[in-house]
Amino acid sequence: MTKLSVNINKVATLRNSRGGNTPNVLQAAIDVQEFGGDGVTVHPRPDERHIRYKDVYDIRPVIKTEFNIEGYPSKEFIDLVLAVRPHQVTLVPDPPEALTSNAGWDTVTHMTFLQDVIGRFSDAGIRTSIFVDTDLKNIEGAVKTNTDRIELYTEPYATNFTKDREAAIAPFVEAAELANKIGLKINAGHDLNLDNLKYFNERIPYLKEVSIGHALISDALYIGLEKTIQLYKQQLIK
């Protein structure tokens, strides 16, 4: 069964919009695990507009499943990850002003940089994953960075799913086949939801983990966090 890591950034966004500590981000991390989530994902940004660096330190001790920290590998981010020691770090190429993740790494252009960063995390015993699109040259470049996994950037799939799901999934199947062949494990994330997740999971047999935040937290506003997590997990049964 593909694992579900719940991104709780949107819980922090709601908290920050009002000040104070409601909703409680730490409790959300605890509840995600209690309700069946296989892991917790956070994406701290330099402006701390949702998850704050302090949140990352506070959350780490309550993690009983898996902790995934994603972000752009600035010096501050690298220092945070090395101090907190999550189970997995996912590297994304977002500039600080980006609203959300919107592209994968050009692993050829940034090969040396990624090798250096991944080497530091690997030496610390932290599993690494890098955010990539379905361009096969970036898949081939990813394995040369020595990363453990890739995370397929699924926004193009989600956008085109309702138009032609076969066409939407095709490049992801090809990318996953290549990644598996060259020894990379595969995660996926971005705009996956209850409508498109099951089909994606069925067509990508090597999928290890999905990270889902915006859609899942939005669904939880209507049907509750516990039921929502269970519904998402049902889509991941193979």
Rank of each mutant, 00 (worst) to 15 (best):
D55F: 11
A124I: 02
I69S: 12
A124R: 00
A215S: 15
R165G: 02
D58W: 03
Y57Q: 06
E76C: 01
A28C: 12
T65K: 15
E151M: 14
K75N: 13
N138C: 04
K163C: 00
K233V: 01
L14E: 04
N21I: 11
I217T: 04
Q235Y: 05
T112V: 06
T2H: 00
F35Y: 15
L184Y: 06
V11Q: 07
Q27R: 12
V40E: 04
K144W: 00
A168W: 08
V92H: 09
D94G: 07
T109K: 15
L194K: 11
F113Y: 09
N196C: 10
R49F: 01
P205H: 05
G104M: 09
A176G: 14
I69D: 05
L26M: 02
P95I: 15
T134M: 03
L216S: 06
L14Y: 06
Y232S: 12
R120Q: 15
N196P: 04
S101N: 09
L231N: 11
T228D: 11
K208W: 05
T228K: 08
I78S: 04
L192N: 03
L236W: 02
L221V: 10
V81K: 01
E174N: 10
T154W: 08
Y72K: 09
T154F: 01
T228V: 09
N21K: 12
K163Y: 09
G189M: 12
R120I: 01
R85A: 02
G39Y: 05
D148W: 05
G213E: 07
V81W: 00
H43E: 05
Y72S: 13
K181W: 05
G36D: 07
K185L: 12
A167L: 12
Q88W: 07
D106T: 08
R127Q: 07
T128H: 11
L152K: 01
L152N: 03
W105T: 01
I217E: 02
L197C: 09
D148N: 15
L236I: 02
V84G: 10
A142F: 03
D31T: 00
V117K: 12
E226I: 03
L136P: 01
L197P: 07
K144V: 00
Q230K: 13
V210I: 14
D116A: 13
A188C: 04
R149K: 07
N24F: 12
G224R: 05
F121S: 01
I212V: 13
A170Y: 04
E151A: 09
E70L: 03
T41V: 13
D38E: 07
I78R: 05
W105S: 03
G183C: 08
S129F: 01
V108G: 03
Y199F: 15
E202G: 08
K144T: 02
V11S: 06
Y232H: 06
L80A: 06
S5F: 04
G19F: 10
K64P: 00
I130E: 11
A83K: 09
A158F: 04
V108C: 10
V143S: 03
T41N: 14
E48C: 08
L184C: 08
I69R: 10
A188N: 06
L114Q: 08
W105F: 13
V62C: 12
T228M: 02
G104N: 04
S74I: 06
E174Y: 02
W105R: 00
I182V: 13
K10A: 13
A220H: 09
N196T: 08
